[in-house]
Amino acid sequence: MRAPRPFRRELIATWGFVARNIHLTKRYWGWELVWFVYSLTSSLAVAYIGLGTERLSGPGVDGNYLTLYLLVGTLVWSYLSQIFYVISEMVAWERWEGTIEYTFMAPSSRLTHLVGTSLFAVVYGVARTLLILAAAALFFDLNLVGADLGAATLWLFVGSISFTGFGILAAVMPLLFPERGVQMTNVVAALLLLISGVYYPVEVLPGWLQFLARVSPATYVIRGMRGAILEGRGLGDAARPLVLLFLGGLAMIVFGTWAFSLAERYAKRTGRLKRSG
């Protein structure tokens, strides 16, 4: 059999990771349904807090604004955290299935592995979030007149890059700590949820948490998304933070990939690749 050219081979391998995850999603459809219902009901429950606050506090509170504020936060977080989990748990998932040595023995590059997994994470995250949004629209009278949807899409795209980098960096932990790595990635995700202003402005946090909020890319993505959807802020206002977020995301991907390669070498030196946790 004639060997394909290196670039074409890596492209085929990239699709291999995407197709594999699509097959897995289909085979685990029961769990997919469970998580979808869970995410949808969580999003609805959070969004209803907006209307509930208006009822409790009186007409001084704009319930519809608050509902949309919370819905944007919960949907963007649902999307970004999905990307984070799919990428950060790629090692743990393969350890659990018992395929990690097979995947790491293949001649495709580790970058291809990371790109393929990240590509699926983004496509999966978009599809899932759009479904939740469509279902949520049945429950609320969402008024998007005046929203700058183009700017919102760009914020989401740039946010995807940042969270891909974060996910790759977090994937190092299951590689280094077979027994505790996944727990650690969950702690990271929980901290990001707390400090990124998903359900409230970060200004209400204590000073030291506000300092941490500055290093979370989710803080900027959620703030940018709210600006675009609730206040119709266009790209003119957002250019500088978008460029900074984009460059930061790229730097995080490069740093994450480098850290992953070091962790892989360490795992191969100490025999941690195979151990199941």
Binding site: P4, I12, A13, W15, T99
Partner: peptide, 23 residues
């Protein structure tokens, strides 16, 4: 070393693509 829920064909397609063989 297989994805337990995937079929033999799905597992082999994954494996083949890692080696650059089209589906």
């Amino acid at each position: 070393a297989f994805f337990k829920k995937l079929s033999p064909m799905e597992n082999l397609l994954y494996g083949a693509r890692l080696y650059g063989i089209p589906g």
